[in-house]
């Protein structure tokens, strides 16, 4: 009996993940088309959030470049749509984002703290306006139509990208590179002294995280049908990824996933039901969370949090 219980505890997490995967993998069989579209949207935010966390959480470098990589994916899709099969387009978008992030990373990852955040924010605006200038003065159009794919296909592609991203994050956290990344976050000089090639590790993981944002952008563009530089390089995607990650909690693997799901679902719900007070409610939820759950939603899983919220004092 005892051993049975112990082995269940050990298997519980993988079993839960597999059950979740099975439910997600068959979603289109039992859910309404609206649900499929909504879940696709939520998963897109999960991808952006988890890919941001992959680099920024262990290193403490706040990147606001998510929207730039996402936008590169969108425009890859808009340019190549119809000329290549969809999986190839998504792969190309991932590679393009990787290359951009590697270049930007090699140039800027020596910037620390707020300077890095500023630069990555500027990158989104820079690409947006370069593209706008190019479209207006060379191609003579402002927006582009994207060859669209059906909603179920897009859902499964987004789900596939997310599964690969989660596996990558999980493996990286436990690998030599993941430990090195964490060491860099705790002290860059000390990390260099232990023989870590600090700039190579940072640049590689930054570029790796960009792959997923780019791939997600390429897939989502086929659902939107029409894009212009303002839609594709919307810096709100950058800020949303950071907000969702912090909302869920950076301390645990599940935190950012939970944060993105709850945040994106709440957003969808409020926009459709209460469009006029949506921002008001959203902002209040964020403020209350930060005040009472400074480590994010995952804190709700700890018994001590409930005791504290009910007014008990922590034993010192």
């Amino acid at each position: 009996m005892q051993t049975g219980k112990a082995s269940w505890l050990r298997l519980r997490t993988p079993v839960l993940w597999l059950a979740l995967l099975a439910a997600m993998g068959t979603l289109s069989l039992y859910a309404s088309p609206y649900t499929v579209i909504m879940v696709t949207n939520i998963l897109m935010y999960v991808i952006l959030t988890v890919s941001w966390v992959l680099f920024s959480a262990p290193t403490g470098y706040i990147s606001l470049a998510t929207a730039a990589f996402f936008g590169v994916g969108i425009y890859t899709s808009a340019t190549l749509g119809g000329q290549l099969p969809l999986p190839l387009i998504i792969l190309t978008a991932g590679v393009a984002s990787f290359v951009l992030a590697a270049l930007v990373g090699a140039l800027t990852l020596r910037l620390k703290g707020v300077y890095f955040a500023f630069f990555t924010f500027g990158l989104v605006e820079l690409i947006k306006h370069l593209l706008l200038w190019y479209e207006v003065s060379v191609t003579g159009v402002r927006g582009r139509f994207v060859v669209s794919a059906d909603n179920v296909t897009i859902y499964y592609i987004i789900l596939g990208i997310l599964v690969i991203l989660l596996l990558t994050s999980y493996l990286i956290r436990r690998s030599r590179v993941g430990l090195a990344l964490q060491a860099i976050g705790e002290g860059e000089d000390a990390a260099a002294h232990t023989g870590i090639n600090v700039s190579a590790v940072k640049t590689f993981v930054f570029a790796l995280s960009a792959v997923f944002a780019g791939a997600a952008g390429a897939a989502m563009a086929t659902r939107w049908g029409y894009v212009d530089p303002y839609i594709a390089f919307d810096y709100l995607f950058s800020f949303t990824a950071v907000a969702m990650a912090v909302f869920g909690g950076l301390g645990r693997f599940e935190g950012p996933i939970l944060g993105a799901v709850v945040f994106a679902f709440l957003r969808e719900l409020l926009i459709t039901r209460f469009p006029y007070v949506y921002m008001l409610v959203m902002g209040s939820v964020l403020v209350v969370t930060i005040l009472y759950l400074p480590q994010g939603l995952v804190q709700l899983a700890q018994k001590s949090t409930w005791r504290r919220l009910r007014g008990h004092r922590e034993p010192a």
Partner: peptide, 21 residues
Amino acid sequence: PEGGRLFPDMSVRENLEMGAY
């Protein structure tokens, strides 16, 4: 390095493993 410069929020074992990077 001076003052040790450990990785404070990593375990003792992880600190040692980083030395073998």
